[in-house]
Amino acid sequence: MLAVDVTTRRSGFELDMSFQVGEDEILGVVGPNGSGKTSLLRIVAGLDPAMQGRVLLDETRWADTGAGIWLPAERRSVGYVPQGSLLFPHMTALDNVGFGMTEPEKALAWLERLGIADLAGARPAELSGGQAQLVALARAQARSPDVLLLDEPLASIDIANRASIRRTVRRELQSGRQHRIFVTHDPLEAVALADRILVVADGRVSQIGTVEDLRRHPRSRYVAELLGLNLFAGTARGGVIALADGAVLVAAETPDGPAFATVHPRAVSLYTSRPSGSPRNIWRAPVTAIEPSLERVRIEVGGSVPVVAEVTPEGARGFREGDDVWVAIKASEVQAYPR
């Protein structure tokens, strides 16, 4: 078990996080750029000091500011794949992998394992972003570290090779018994690779849980947006959630007391005139934005209860920004849970 509980502060930036990663677990840290993801990895790796707190690997204290303990990176059993690979430019791929090994002659086996043995003699300048990433992964794994840290492992990979490299990275990530943390700004990547997801915002843990946990019960607008959900907060009683400024949302089922509610954008219907059917939630509000994508069109509706709808391109015809529309949501599509 890797237990992290650290606080640090740098000019205008504060980081305060507490979480644990089990052996055998892959934790995906997701958050916007500048939210402190890389800083977190560097503290765990021992490259930057934490101002306060502890980093424990099972019984071993890597850092414990209260006890004045701080192990430098070279004394932690950690593998670090930084963003952009950062291979040693004056060494071949093979020598990069062998650098940290007690038996460098076994370096080739690691390249073979990641399917890049043919690149053994190449210099980093001759490698593509994806190839460099695999070499960097082999280099970090060659020491069989207890903790593996990856910073945006798929960010610098050209689209053409993305799928195959992603496959290799995933296979490598999922094969060992290790505490693994990877950082990404891309929620899809996190969902695809992680066992659990830690959402970071402004240097804090916004939410942590399995993809299912997050999808079912997002606890912040940011998490909901990451997962593409509409999130509402209010006070629930007997199937009715009272939102801010007097609006209400009717759900099939609600807890009593403070509650969140999510609605999938595809469950939001839009009409140019008042619909006649059975939806329990109907209101009128102006369209604030229309964003076409490949299969669906996202339409943002303003008013006192802002909401996002996803409709087919055909369904989107007839709506224009600034026009008032009718919004309808079935009670059965409103998922409510305690705050």
């Binding site: 021992g46 490259l47 650098f99 970090a140």
Partner: peptide, 9 residues
């Protein structure tokens, strides 16, 4: 830093 994580003092 990378070299440090690879055990180099």
């Amino acid at each position: 830093g990378v070299a440090a994580t690879l055990g180099a003092g």
